[in-house]
């Protein structure tokens, strides 16, 4: 107990303490200048009536779903592609992983140039028959653009996680399946996928949590626009707290975000536990 006490104390002071403080703050009005004043559930009632909050909530859910699905699919695809004995495998893996270690600010600025109406992306897509795409200024395209950057950045990280999972599957299983006449698709469907289920669960949960906390990408790339098209809850928390100086209201939004993340995580846990039971 004595050995773990510093860690427990650290978490109590720097993690759970502020969390509880934020929850308490959500029942107050607090402009950072005067002491907080108790207002009960007023902040929650107010944000639920606020169309900007509702838009930001919808954007956040779309972003979480879009990023998590594509990060998982692309990460798994890359892992399967790289899980070969071909030459240059390590070099490929390292090159892909570079996207993950680049400073986020640089990533966002580079993508802003790529997304420019006359930027590289449109110049590449033009000859393929696409007209001018206003990636960051068309409200229908702005969120997919942010998801694209997210997948580009994080999929290689999860590729490594999937790759580690793939390497733990004994090759004898595949040899036996091959002898039994299973083709590549069936081997993937009945061997790889079930045996990767714990890893997939980890990837989905972590990717969803990561997505729920997204802030810098929409903040730098689109500023939440056009209109409210890419304003996510974490951006709204920042604006409400630090631009409008409504800390109580910002805390209420952060509690809602926390609840969403908790619900998502619990739902995914139930879903994956059931899937694992079915496969085992």
């Amino acid at each position: 107990m004595a050995f773990v006490m510093p860690t427990i104390l650290f978490f109590l002071v720097f993690k759970y303490g502020p969390m509880l403080w934020a929850m308490g703050l959500s029942f107050t009005t607090y402009d950072m200048m005067k002491p907080p004043r108790w207002v009960g559930l007023e902040n929650y009632e107010s944000i639920l009536r606020d169309p900007i909050f509702r838009e930001a909530l919808a954007n956040t859910l779309v972003y979480i779903a879009g990023s998590t699905i594509f990060i998982t699919l692309v990460g798994l695809g890359l892992a399967l592609a790289i899980n070969t004995r071909g030459p240059g495998r390590r070099a490929c893996m390292s090159a892909m992983f570079l996207t993950n270690i680049m400073p986020i600010l640089a990533v966002c600025l580079v993508w802003r140039f790529l997304f420019h109406p006359h930027g590289l992306l449109n110049q590449f897509l033009g000859p393929l028959g696409f007209g001018r795409l206003d990636w960051l200024t068309d409200s229908a395209l702005a969120m997919p653009a942010i998801i694209l950057v997210t997948v580009w950045r994080f999929a290689p990280y999860f590729m490594v996680v999937f790759l580690a999972g793939l390497l733990t599957i004994p090759p004898e299983y595949y040899e036996a399946a091959e002898i039994d006449g299973a083709n590549a698709v069936r081997r993937f469907r009945y061997l790889t996928l079930p045996l990767l289920m714990p890893v997939t669960f980890f990837v989905v949960v972590v990717a969803a949590l990561l997505s729920a906390r997204i802030f810098l990408m929409p903040f730098i790339i689109t500023g939440g626009g056009p209109g409210n098209a890419t304003r996510v809850l974490s951006m709204l928390i920042y604006e409400t707290g630090f631009s409008y100086m409504k800390m109580g209201r910002a805390a209420a939004i952060s509690v809602v975000l926390f609840a969403i993340v908790m619900v998502l995580t619990l739902a995914q846990m139930r879903l994956f536990m059931r899937s694992e039971e079915e496969y085992s």
Binding site: D134, T137, D138, S139, G225, P226, G227, N228
Partner: peptide
């Protein structure tokens, strides 16, 4: 936001 909606959308 209003200007963005008018000018961009």
């Amino acid at each position: 936001r209003a200007v963005q909606k008018v000018m961009l959308n």
